[in-house]
Amino acid sequence: MSAPRLASALEVAALIRMAEAGGGFGMVLHRGEPDSGSILIVILDNQGFGQTHARAFERLPTASGSRSWSLSRSQDPEKKEKFDTYLARRIEQDPDLWIIELTIAEGEQFI
């Protein structure tokens, strides 16, 4: 028997609050299904040098049956539009998907 899963909307709100409490910023880019939608987290590191590096993380099933966060896409600074195209394609594939953006140094600490 698996443990009950936290509602997606609640988890999203908590992630955004944690980023803001850590001095960062968080926002919802796409609102998904409130109870059971999957979550994709875009982490932006902007250290004030004008160059922002984005990485997308998703919780994916593992061989053991559990789910763990995995890097699904990293933005190429030379081809930023490809990252946006990837996010749009993920929404088309899964309209229940939540996409949130966290702008904070060392954002991986939240996953």
Rank of each mutant, 00 (worst) to 15 (best):
M1K: 08
S2F: 03
A3G: 09
A3H: 06
P4A: 10
L6C: 02
A7T: 05
V12M: 00
V12W: 00
V12Q: 00
A14F: 06
L15G: 01
L15D: 02
L15R: 09
I16W: 08
I16Q: 07
R17A: 15
R17H: 07
G22H: 04
G23N: 11
G23C: 00
G24S: 04
F25I: 06
G26W: 02
M27S: 14
M27F: 03
H30I: 04
R31Y: 05
R31K: 12
G32K: 01
E33M: 09
E33T: 04
E33N: 12
E33Q: 10
E33H: 12
P34V: 01
P34A: 09
S36C: 09
S36D: 14
G37R: 04
G37Q: 03
G37V: 12
G37I: 06
S38T: 13
L40E: 10
L40Y: 00
L40R: 11
L40F: 01
I41E: 03
V42D: 07
V42R: 05
I43N: 04
L44W: 11
D45Y: 03
D45E: 15
D45A: 14
N46I: 03
N46K: 08
N46D: 15
Q47T: 07
Q47K: 13
G48L: 01
G48V: 00
F49M: 14
F49L: 12
G50R: 04
G50L: 07
G50A: 08
T52R: 14
T52N: 15
A54C: 09
R55Q: 14
R55W: 11
A56G: 04
A56E: 05
F57T: 07
F57R: 13
F57C: 07
F57H: 15
E58L: 10
E58D: 09
R59I: 02
P61L: 05
T62P: 07
S64T: 15
G65E: 08
G65N: 10
S66C: 05
R67I: 01
R67D: 09
S68Q: 14
S68Y: 05
W69K: 02
W69I: 09
W69Y: 10
W69R: 05
W69M: 04
W69G: 08
S70K: 15
S70V: 13
L71R: 12
S72Y: 10
S72Q: 13
S74L: 08
Q75C: 13
Q75G: 03
D76L: 09
P77T: 13
P77S: 09
K80L: 11
E81C: 04
K82F: 05
F83S: 13
T85W: 08
Y86T: 00
Y86H: 14
L87H: 10
L87N: 00
R89A: 15
R89D: 15
R89G: 15
R90Q: 13
R90G: 08
I91P: 02
I91T: 09
I91M: 06
E92F: 05
E92K: 13
D94G: 08
P95W: 03
P95Y: 06
P95A: 10
D96S: 15
D96H: 06
D96K: 02
L97N: 00
W98A: 02
W98D: 06
I99W: 00
I100T: 01
E101F: 02
E101Y: 01
L102P: 04
L102W: 04
T103L: 07
I104S: 03
I104G: 02
A105H: 04
A105D: 11
A105K: 09
E106C: 12
E106S: 12
G107P: 06
G107D: 07
E108G: 03
F110T: 01
I111D: 00
I111Q: 09
